[in-house]
């Protein structure tokens, strides 16, 4: 790993740490209804929404009521998006005259954007009208992210409230997350992106003549306004097919850095919000430390393998060394303006979170460089994670960790003063087990059926990696494409939709239930036998549990894909 790479990662991490505290404080104020500087502008809007929708925002909900409100809200949004896609031909803001989206692709896309996955089996500029992009996809970018933040906040309430059966109001949390956090942040970030050269218009596509005299169609559209929420909401669905490799989505080194920062921003800030709501910011920093250490390990691993490149090329006399004139290493599928470091760093960031935006093609990474994004997702998207879902996933892992620690020393496990008992452990197991069941189950189905095998473009272990990656990003609600898999088929559209939906909702439900189970419990004051959950020992234990749960479950599948491909490459059998 070059000194330049170390410096870039260090600068990136330092800025993430710097924004965590102010963002965390602001979000805590928003969700506990303390005054904020945006109140004069937003309180009247909030009140108007509640009045228009007939919402009693002060009414507290049980965890079950909260979950059902979230489910019905998502169901309605998903069906409306499906309808919009199917009928876009008859609707305005369609200057290219794009036809209605076919049913299986529309279903896949509706499931994808409702679950905050934003997997795209389509090319945006050739499939979706401006109206579908703005009123359908961008709408879900906001509300699916807001629903994730809302769920994280309500789950924190379950952990920190004492002897209370209710956990807040879903509509209050949803509206606040959208109005106070996502909309203002996206407004500012969109302006910055426009300054950097990202277009935002409703014009027909431009036709131009290239230097060689050929005619080229240059896609246009409301890009900047959707680019901001794509990263801030850890959505990841690009306006254009090639996502953030496209110069209209990610034109400059500064836009690249800011987009990477905005992917981590809210997830990092929520750890501090958690610490504040728990009454001990060190609890939040402990979770932050776990996330940061796992992130740095993944980032440097991916950068190392991408900088080293393919040894078979070096044997042919090709110069892979980094220099002032070339990035060196493995540059297949990468933008020369980003090089190895920023491509591998972005890949780690986008898969640690459930973002899934890409600025390089993960399919073209070296086998072990490409293993890192896959493992990041398989660890359960808890490394900053999806906005909201990352934090509550980490809290489930924290509960598992204190349970294991309790078993070791023979004491009743506690977390934040709440006793962890059999009900919480059953719910934690439901949360943990459905994830690998979805990924490995669907991957096994795909490799067993001709319809699944038909999507593979590279035979052998790399083809298996393509399938494993696809169902991993689906269940993890990540949405990044490994690339190379022909996924716009009935088989992949349906199975990936049925992979994404439980990956979001069937995992959120047990997490909410756990909060509902902890909320009514009394808080026990710490004693000499209490395992402190705000120190280095807990950080180490939590990292161990996350790695063991992820690594043990997925190691055999990884051995069949990227690991064996690495040995075949180094042995000179595969180039």
């Amino acid at each position: 790993v070059t000194a330049n790479a170390i410096a870039q990662v260090a600068i990136y991490m330092a800025v993430v740490v710097a924004i965590t505290v102010p963002l965390g404080i602001y979000m805590e104020r928003v969700f506990t209804a303390k005054p904020t500087f945006l109140d004069p502008a937003l309180l009247p809007v909030e009140r108007a929404i509640y009045r228009f929708c007939g919402i009693a925002s002060e009414t507290e909900m049980s965890w079950g009521g909260y979950a059902i409100a979230m489910l019905l809200f998502s169901l309605t949004g998903m069906l409306l998006l499906y309808l919009l896609e199917r009928l876009q031909w008859y609707l305005p803001f369609n200057p290219q005259g794009l036809p209605g989206v076919p049913p299986s692709l529309a279903f896949n896309t509706a499931a994808s954007f409702t679950t905050n996955t934003n997997w795209q089996a389509y090319g945006g500029e050739t499939t979706m009208s401006y109206l579908t992009q703005m009123a359908g996809l961008a709408y879900h970018n906001f509300v699916s992210a807001a629903a994730g933040i809302a769920m994280a906040i309500t789950i924190i309430r379950g952990f920190v409230r004492r002897s209370v059966k209710t956990l807040g109001n879903f509509w209050f949390d949803l509206v606040r997350a959208t109005l106070w956090i996502l909309l203002p942040a996206c407004l500012i970030f969109s302006m910055v992106l426009i300054w950097q050269g990202v277009p935002d218009n409703l014009s027909p596509y431009t036709q131009d003549t290239t230097l060689e005299g050929a005619t080229q169609v240059i896609a246009q559209g409301p890009v900047a306004s959707q680019e901001a929420i794509k990263e801030l909401g850890t959505n990841g669905g690009g306006f254009f097919n090639s996502n953030s490799t496209h110069p209209y989505e990610n034109p400059t080194p500064l836009s690249n850095l800011l987009e990477m920062l905005s992917i981590f921003a809210i997830g990092a800030g929520l750890t501090y919000t958690f610490g504040l709501m728990a009454g001990d910011v060190r609890q939040g920093w402990a979770l932050f430390a776990v996330m940061a250490l796992l992130f740095l390990t993944g980032a440097f691993t991916a950068i190392h393998f991408e900088q080293r490149g393919n040894p078979n090329l070096a044997q042919l006399g090709i110069n892979l060394a980094p220099s002032a004139t070339q990035s060196g290493g493995n540059m297949e599928g990468k933008e020369t303006r980003f090089g190895n470091t920023d491509s591998a760093l972005w890949a780690t960031i986008t898969t640690d979170t459930s973002c899934g935006a890409v600025n390089a093609m993960h399919d073209s990474f070296t086998p072990l460089g490409g293993l890192v994004p896959m493992v990041d997702m398989q660890l359960g998207e808890v490394i900053f994670g999806g906005v909201g879902s990352g934090l509550y996933g980490m809290l489930v892992m924290a509960v598992l960790s204190v349970f294991i620690a309790g078993l070791m020393v023979g004491r009743t496990p506690e977390y934040l003063g709440k006793k962890i008992e059999s009900r919480e452990m059953k719910l934690a197991m439901l949360y943990v087990l459905i994830f690998p069941a979805l990924i490995l189950g669907f991957a096994a189905l795909a490799v067993a059926l001709p319809a699944g095998l038909a999507g593979i473009t590279n035979p052998g272990p790399h083809g298996f990696s393509q399938i494993l990656y696809a169902y991993t990003e689906g269940a993890a609600n990540n949405g990044s494409a490994f690339g190379g898999l022909n996924a716009n088929s009935n088989f992949y559209n349906w199975t990936l939709a049925l992979d994404m939906l439980p990956g979001r909702f069937m995992m959120a439900i047990p997490a909410l239930a756990m909060a509902g189970s902890l909320g009514p419990k009394k808080s026990i004051p710490p004693s000499a036998g209490t395992f402190p959950t705000n120190g280095a020992l807990f950080v180490g234990l939590l990292i161990g549990v996350i790695l063991i749960v992820g690594a043990l479950t997925f190691f055999p599948a990884l051995a069949l894909g990227p690991i064996v491909e690495h040995f075949l490459m180094t042995g000179g059998i595969l180039s």
Binding site: G64, L75, P103, A106, R423
Partner: peptide
């Protein structure tokens, strides 16, 4: 044909969310 597929999508979506609501009920009784 496409109307039948539309219907299949709507039924599948509704079935999934109904199952999720039943899952909420199941987790309540756990």
């Amino acid at each position: 044909m496409s109307v039948m597929l539309d219907l299949l999508v709507v039924v599948t979506t509704a079935a999934f969310f109904l199952t999720s609501i039943a899952y909420v009920a199941g987790c309540t009784r756990l």
